[in-house]
Computed example of a mutant assay.
Amino acid sequence: MMEVKQNKKIEIKELGFKDYKETWDYQEQLFKEILDIKVKNRRENTQIETPNYLLSVEHPHVYTLGKSGDVSNLLINENQLEEKGAKFYKINRGGDITYHGPGQMVIYPILDLDNFFTDIHKYLRLLEETVILVLRDYGVKAERSEGETGVWLDVGTPFARKICAMGVRASRWVTMHGLALNVNADLGYFDNIVPCGIKEKAVTSLNVELGENYVDMEEVKQKFLDYFNELFDAEF
């Protein structure tokens, strides 16, 4: 079989404020498009380039449970969900339960890792590193927590708290789902879950860490894209 040329271009899709389920369906559509090209290349010995996408979005209040998650980590019932204007979905990413909502920068890279590197562990570590570098620009020292995905502050202390959740799915080296960085998030919504199934660990937001009412989301997003571009050797 002829080797398909690597395509390092990533198309950024700004989705604005969009319902979780609609965004999930759109992810699935793009994910399938890339997989179909890969199958065609293999079966027909063609060399069609696979595209890469990066979706940027904010969601209305929603709780999502990964395929290995425990539904008991959602601490409220259907009526309470409705009262809080929140939805709940079981989805096909890794990880347990998490919350998405206004004030959170959500990024879904739909990448063919054959265009970059075929290593899911490296992919997750680079996503974490991108967020760590963004936070460093704001004077916030963030790091990884051994055995736990995402990005944390004050790891190894009684004050450890998560600022960015991650959960991905991959098939034939094509990725979907991604990360959620709390920028101006309403942290009260995290009280209704055991975040990521990890008990006795707090959650925080960038504006809280900086002691500000509001942090410029567009500025945070641009920093993220710049570091992502650099670490993945990508082209936007």
Rank of each mutant, 00 (worst) to 15 (best):
residue 3 E to N: 14
residue 4 V to L: 12
residue 10 I to M: 04
residue 12 I to A: 12
residue 12 I to S: 10
residue 13 K to H: 14
residue 15 L to K: 13
residue 16 G to M: 11
residue 29 Q to I: 11
residue 30 L to V: 10
residue 35 L to F: 10
residue 38 K to Y: 09
residue 40 K to Y: 13
residue 48 I to C: 10
residue 48 I to N: 13
residue 54 L to D: 00
residue 54 L to G: 05
residue 59 H to V: 08
residue 60 P to L: 13
residue 63 Y to M: 04
residue 64 T to V: 10
residue 64 T to M: 05
residue 71 V to T: 12
residue 76 I to R: 06
residue 77 N to P: 07
residue 84 K to W: 09
residue 89 Y to P: 03
residue 91 I to N: 03
residue 100 H to Y: 06
residue 100 H to F: 09
residue 101 G to K: 01
residue 103 G to A: 09
residue 112 D to V: 03
residue 117 F to P: 02
residue 118 T to H: 07
residue 120 I to E: 00
residue 121 H to T: 14
residue 122 K to S: 06
residue 126 L to G: 00
residue 126 L to F: 09
residue 130 T to H: 07
residue 131 V to T: 08
residue 133 L to W: 10
residue 135 L to A: 04
residue 138 Y to S: 02
residue 139 G to K: 06
residue 139 G to E: 03
residue 143 E to M: 13
residue 148 E to G: 08
residue 152 W to T: 08
residue 158 P to N: 11
residue 159 F to E: 15
residue 165 A to L: 04
residue 166 M to W: 05
residue 167 G to K: 02
residue 167 G to E: 02
residue 171 S to T: 15
residue 174 V to Y: 05
residue 175 T to E: 03
residue 178 G to F: 01
residue 182 N to M: 05
residue 183 V to F: 00
residue 186 D to V: 04
residue 187 L to R: 04
residue 191 D to H: 12
residue 191 D to E: 15
residue 194 V to M: 01
residue 197 G to C: 03
residue 197 G to M: 06
residue 201 K to I: 10
residue 201 K to W: 10
residue 209 E to L: 08
residue 209 E to D: 07
residue 210 L to E: 00
residue 211 G to C: 07
residue 215 V to H: 03
residue 216 D to W: 02
residue 227 Y to N: 08
residue 228 F to S: 04
